[in-house]
């Protein structure tokens, strides 16, 4: 992770990192154990790897293979009827590189919960579009930015970048100055977009 944080050459160095002032004890995620967490754990057993809470926000760490059934259960049985967001985080050093994050909200309960699942590069994950229609564009954006394939998505194609673009910009190995030079030259008729 640390090597990803190279200083950006285009930015003048900001205040040099001084030794941190006596920091308060580092907060860490605590186990989350209430009725909802217990019900979900009992129902899906080994597919729920962990249920944690951090800063008052609860989340499940689940097995990617059962993402649709867990999400379906949360929507239909536990009233998490609103899919707030689907996004991903890239951890290139982990064995399973991408962590998908599903943020759910329940109108009747007025609570949020996150569901996280990890997948390896080139490993597809089931789409949750059958569960929530919102997932359509949100998953397309994740595909666009990370190159994660969603199996069963009705229309998986790029959404923010042009169709012919090569590369997925939010991956950590895609530098901020990188671009698809060939696409830029062919379509914009300029040497470089920089």
């Amino acid at each position: 992770m640390a090597e990803e944080k190279k200083p950006d050459p285009t930015v003048p160095p900001s205040a040099p990192p001084k030794p941190a002032a006596a920091a308060p004890p580092k907060p860490a995620a605590q186990p989350w154990d209430d009725e909802l967490a217990r019900r979900v754990r009992e129902r899906f057993r080994s597919a729920i790897k962990d249920s944690l809470t951090y800063l008052g926000q609860n989340y499940f760490v689940v097995d990617a293979a059962s993402i649709t059934s867990i999400c379906g259960y949360l929507k239909h049985e536990e009233e998490f009827n609103y899919l707030v967001d689907v996004t991903a985080v890239d951890y290139p050093k982990r064995e399973k590189r991408f962590e998908l994050v599903y943020i759910l909200y329940s109108f009747p309960r007025n609570t949020r919960v996150r569901v996280k699942a990890s997948i390896a590069e080139n490993e597809p994950i089931d789409s949750v579009t059958p569960v929530w229609q919102t997932a359509n564009w949100l998953e397309r954006e994740v595909y666009d930015m990370f190159g994660i394939r969603f199996a069963g998505h009705p229309d998986l194609k790029r959404i923010l970048l042009p169709d012919g673009w090569q590369g997925h910009p939010l991956r950590k190995d895609y530098s901020i100055l990188k671009q698809d030079e060939q696409w830029v030259q062919e379509n914009l008729h300029i040497e470089s977009g920089q």
């Binding site: 580092k26 907060p27 800063l55 926000q57 943020i103």
Partner: peptide, 10 residues
């Protein structure tokens, strides 16, 4: 220097 502890938040 804003340096939040490791963790995530929505």
């Amino acid at each position: 220097v804003v340096k939040p502890p490791a963790g995530e938040v929505y």
